[in-house]
Design a protein around this nucleic acid. Structure first.
Lengths: 231, 231
DNA sequence: GCAAATTAATGATTTATTCAAG
DNA sequence: CTTGAATAAATCATTAATTTGC
């Protein structure tokens, strides 16, 4: 079992230093509660500042990052919508049933884990109005700017979210091995602080060509794309 | 989708803080060229380090952020695939035509911008093999570790990408305010004062409740979700 | 009563769509 | 009309529940 870099937590031999450390965020009761509260208040896609703020608050109840908050809202929103959709379907179905007997309608598969099988036609029903929740007292109407300009601004702000939200960065489980190995010399034109984290494996998901992920992250601009042997 | 609600956010008075500054990245010829080269070399979803590296290099040809690189690869990949798909369809269509005349097959709508109209059954054909490009010499075959474990690792790394990639942060049109403005004091546990910034618009896309986006970013936890008057 | 085996949830990513600036 | 940006939908992969055999 030799693997590529020593990055693997592999064999059970003298390994499993931090067996799992912090694989993924595991929200506490309070955190969930708070988040749901916000959601009910109408928060759906918090801005960067909001996320930071929320994360900060929630940190009192356990480790949490802006990223987690971001994802939570995204997932919750999506799942809430999906749930509602199913519900609606159920109603519809029932209504139709009383009107035209039990047709071979899709019984709204209770299987939350249906994989590949494409929907194959079964998506309709309303989408939006999942919750009317409204609160947020205080000022409103952002005033100023034409609609276009305005939306633009929103977009802009949204972007921030992603950036900042993710900014907290790192797993930090070990809270110590911060210096992480510098697998290769980052030397962009204008010097960039940042940290080298640990494993540089590119990816593979989509095409990946064949398999290996970029073993040598540098030489990007080295061999240059002039001699692309491919097609 | 629906955006009927009175989205008008007030009169255009004293708005447009930073008129337009730097709306969006406008890649230079060289940058594009370089990016395409990388793409052809097989780069599809670069890691955080790679993105940083690339952005750094490209910075020589004009302002660019990691974020841009990230998005570029994402979009390019998607569009390349889409193009290929269409192409495939064309082929298929042609082949079929020679075999069974011109049936009312969907003429592969050349409209690259088909909006809402749900697919309504019309999605098939291969997905993956959009491009064979392969280079990346070096190691391959993940060997060692079970497949599951392996993929897991990759995932983990992927996450990093988003984080760091977005880390550069901000528009920075001014190129100088490197100290990343701290819009508000991150105080995980301490008091919460923060400032009203400018426009804390939550969003609008999905539901938005009614319209106004969270005007007062604080009071999240203030009024608390205990008295949710709604439903 | 526990621990391996399943199943149900749900955090994290990736892919597909949509929007709108240039 | 091209394409950078952003959001939503679809997936994937773990972790917590639950069930089952001993």
């Amino acid at each position: 079992m030799e693997e590529s870099e020593g990055k693997e937590k592999g064999p059970s031999v003298a390994a499993a230093p931090p067996p799992q450390a912090c694989s993924r965020w595991n929200p506490t009761k309070e955190q969930i509660s708070l988040l749901e509260g916000l959601y009910r208040q109408g928060v759906r896609t918090p801005t960067a500042e909001q996320i930071q703020h929320i994360a900060g608050k929630l940190q009192e109840f356990g480790r949490i990052e802006g990223k987690n908050v971001f994802y939570w809202f995204q997932n919750h929103k999506a799942r809430q919508r999906q749930k509602q959709k199913q519900e609606n379907f159920g109603h519809l179905s029932r209504l139709l049933r009383t009107r035209a007997g039990p047709p071979p309608l899709r019984p709204a598969p209770p299987h939350p884990t249906l994989h590949h099988p494409p929907p194959a036609g079964g998506t309709l029903l309303c989408y939006h109005p999942p919750l009317p929740a409204v609160v947020f007292a205080g000022a409103m109407a952002p005033e100023g700017a034409e609609e276009t300009r305005y939306r633009n601004l929103e977009r802009y702000d949204r972007r921030r979210l992603l950036e900042t939200a993710a900014a907290d960065e790192e797993c930090m489980c070990d809270a110590e091995s911060r210096q992480t190995l510098q697998l290769f010399p980052l030397h962009p034109a204008g010097a960039s602080k940042e940290e080298p984290v640990d494993s540089p494996p590119s990816t593979e998901s989509d095409d990946g060509g064949s398999c290996c992920r970029s073993p040598s992250p540098l030489d990007f601009f080295g061999s240059q794309y002039g001699l692309t042997s491919e097609r």
